[in-house]
Simulated scan of single mutants.
Amino acid sequence: MSRRRMAVVGYDTAELLDIACVTTTLVMANHLGTPARPYEVVVAAPGGGPIVCGSGLTLHSQQSLERLVGPLDTLIVSGGVGFEQAAADPRLLGHVRRLAKESRRVASVCTGAAILAAAGLLDGHRATTHWRFASQLAARHPEVTVDASPIYIRDGDVSTAAGITSALDLTLAFIEEDHGAELARQVARDLVTYLQRPGNQAQMSLFTAVPPPRDDLVRRVVDHVAGHPDGDLRTAALAALVSVTPRHLTRLFVEHLGQTPGRFVRQARTEAAAHLLASTTLPLASVAAKCGFGSAETLRQAFTGRYGIPPSRYREAHGARPARR
């Protein structure tokens, strides 16, 4: 039986969760299903030595990065506090480039995107990373189209996941692509996690209610709202999108989300604004426009109603830090 060889690259002070979210999810897929091509998961590190993670815990690698050879199904580079040193290591970058040529898919988690970018593997691609480091990645690699909003981006055969646990969302997407939606659902249930937040959902989303997987219609509308906060999101327009009446859509939203479509849209737009306030320096008027509010004042009212503070104070507390040089 052929197996899908999945290699996860770690290094000194890599983030343990970046690695574990991938490896645990893939191995659980093997345990819960009987895929025709089960995953063979290997954690590789320079020299094949132990990985002292950023948390201080030590993870034993299974393979020397230098001796790892393809073909690989997927190469996944983790992030962590040591990402800058890793991205400046020409030997590590050389092996990442070599293995990428022998892989069907290439991916990164969190600040691992900086390593892919330094290796030239994100040139011409749209990519994401942890929201806190997005501006730094964009400044250092102008050839990469950095989008700080989504929790993951799949651009051809190159994928990038955002902050830490978004690796789980991306890995579930890989499982669905490889083995179908039902196995991905089983894995998500056993992990006690959301059944795949849409990739274009904002990293800073504070959503606490997700439509049950069985209701595809509600999920389609939620995904559309998350991806198009500046669009026409009136209840009538959303109902037309899924070919139902506004009354029927409202009934479904109340049943599955406990709120009307209008209230959900206002919440989603406000949360999108919170993300932009924290991760960009856009003027309030621009934030309002991108999030579907008619004016900065309308944004201020909605934001204060939801978070209890005006947008300006929220930005002071959570705003993007200048990129480190």
Rank of each mutant, 00 (worst) to 15 (best):
A44H: 05
L26D: 07
A14R: 06
V8C: 07
T23G: 03
G33W: 04
A36Q: 13
A36E: 15
L17H: 02
C53N: 04
L32M: 05
P46K: 07
P38R: 08
C21I: 06
M1H: 14
R37A: 15
V42K: 09
G47P: 03
L32F: 05
G49S: 10
A45M: 06
V8R: 02
A36G: 15
N30L: 01
T25H: 00
R3Q: 13
E15G: 08
A20F: 10
G10W: 08
Y39K: 00
D12F: 11
C53T: 15
R37M: 12
T13Q: 10
E15T: 11
Y11I: 06
M28P: 04
C21R: 04
N30G: 03
M1E: 13
I19H: 03
G54T: 13
T25K: 00
V8P: 03
V22G: 04
L16K: 06
V52D: 12
L17N: 02
P46Y: 09
C21Y: 10
T34H: 14
L17S: 10
V27T: 14
V27I: 12
V52L: 14
E40I: 02
A14H: 08
G54C: 11
A7F: 09
V22M: 09
A20L: 14
T24W: 04
R4G: 05
G48I: 05
A14G: 11
T34F: 12
A44M: 12
C21D: 14
R3W: 09
R4C: 07
Y11Q: 04
A14Q: 07
G54R: 06
V42S: 12
V8H: 06
P50W: 10
A36K: 14
L26E: 08
T24H: 12
T25L: 01
V22D: 05
C53P: 06
D12T: 11
M6R: 11
R3L: 11
C53D: 05
T24S: 13
D18C: 01
R37F: 06
I51C: 01
G48K: 03
M6E: 11
N30D: 03
L17F: 08
C53E: 07
V42T: 14
V27E: 13
A14Y: 07
T23E: 04
A45S: 15
A44Y: 06
E40H: 13
G10K: 05
A36T: 13
G49E: 12
V43G: 00
L26A: 13
G54E: 14
P38A: 09
H31S: 15
D18Q: 01
A44G: 07
I19L: 12
Y39A: 00
L17A: 10
T13M: 09
T24G: 11
C21T: 13
D12Y: 10
G10D: 10
R4I: 07
T24I: 12
D18W: 00
I51G: 01
E40P: 04
A45G: 08
Y11G: 03
A20P: 05
I51S: 00
G47Q: 03
E15I: 02
M1T: 14
T23Y: 01
A36M: 10
T13S: 13
A44Q: 05
T23I: 08
P46F: 08
V8Y: 05
V42D: 02
Y39G: 00
L17T: 11
